[in-house]
Amino acid sequence: MNASLRRIGVVGGGQMGAGIAEVCARAGLDTVVCEADATAADAARDRVTASLARAVGKGKLDRASAEAALARLVFTGSLDDLADRHLVIEAVVENPDVKTEIFAALDKIVEDPEAILVTNTSSIPVMRLGMATRRADRVIGLHFFNPVPVLPLVEVVASLHTAPETVTAVEDFAATLGKTVVRSRDRAGFVVNALLIPYLLSAVRMAESGFATAADVDAGMELGCAHPMGPLKLADLIGLDTVASIAESLYEEFKEPLYAPPPLLQRMVQAGLLGRKTGRGFHTYVPTAGADARS
């Protein structure tokens, strides 16, 4: 096992991947971000640059530190550029087939047999991804929360094959990023989403039935329960496609009706009404520059 995980790779430069890359670079780590092609890689760079600029504007980061972080980042459209990495974090769309394909490819590309392959999945079994490789003992889940530069939590998820040394190394890595770790067993939803998703789906069903408007559902939880954000606003922030994917994974594993995605949620995803990143979900937003449908 690598004593020092200094060369980091991130696969996916969308909302989550860009945030993960940013916190790695801000922690002083040499970070390569891989996207589907050069155009997407440029968009990922713009996403990180804009986030760093916001941090500077809010006084949370000085300009020199932001420039130093950006200098530690390389953006590419080729997985082959991750060959020399000590640790690679997959942060692409929440689709098990896509993630499995990426892990199989990374297993062949990443040269160091002791390198760790990490998934940022919020619901897909880590075991499934590990079994797509020849190094299941060095495959682990590290689930970040959005926005990654702001929220301090990560879930560490070991499969039945994950070696104890891998768990220790990744927890140390998370500490380097300034994150607080909670451990979860390898089951759909882990800790946070197993609790959160049924709550969000209940809010969707309430709006779907006409029992209350989306605005009133959110106001009720914000003003009546002191939640910082109502459930439908939160679903919009997460991305309705991601919420639906997590719900489907939970339902597939447990067959509990409360995990089944409601028809309204499915139709909104089919219509491309994904929340903040598309400008419209249960509420309407000004689209964020460079937003996409990645998780």
Rank of each mutant, 00 (worst) to 15 (best):
A68N: 08
A68T: 08
L29K: 11
F254E: 12
A50H: 04
V170S: 14
L129T: 03
M221D: 02
S202M: 12
P164W: 10
A271S: 11
D30H: 10
D97Y: 03
S122R: 10
S295M: 14
A50F: 00
R267A: 15
A203T: 12
K99V: 08
G77I: 06
A43K: 13
A55G: 06
G13V: 06
M127R: 10
S295Y: 15
L52W: 13
G290H: 12
V204S: 10
A55L: 15
G57A: 04
G77C: 08
A36D: 06
A226E: 15
G77K: 07
I116M: 01
V269D: 09
A215V: 12
S4N: 14
Y199P: 06
V98T: 12
R6F: 00
M221Q: 03
L142P: 03
R276S: 00
F144I: 02
A136I: 06
L258M: 14
I238S: 07
S184R: 04
G130M: 08
G141Y: 08
R85C: 15
A71T: 05
A38K: 05
D37F: 04
A71V: 05
N95V: 03
R63P: 01
A174M: 07
V286N: 10
E67V: 05
P287G: 03
L264N: 07
T31L: 00
L153H: 04
R128S: 11
D218K: 11
T119I: 01
I124H: 09
G14H: 12
L79G: 04
L250H: 05
D84Y: 00
A36K: 15
V182N: 01
E253T: 15
A207H: 11
V191Q: 04
R63N: 14
L264R: 15
I246K: 02
P257D: 15
T100F: 02
R187Q: 13
L87V: 07
L177Y: 07
V23A: 05
K277S: 10
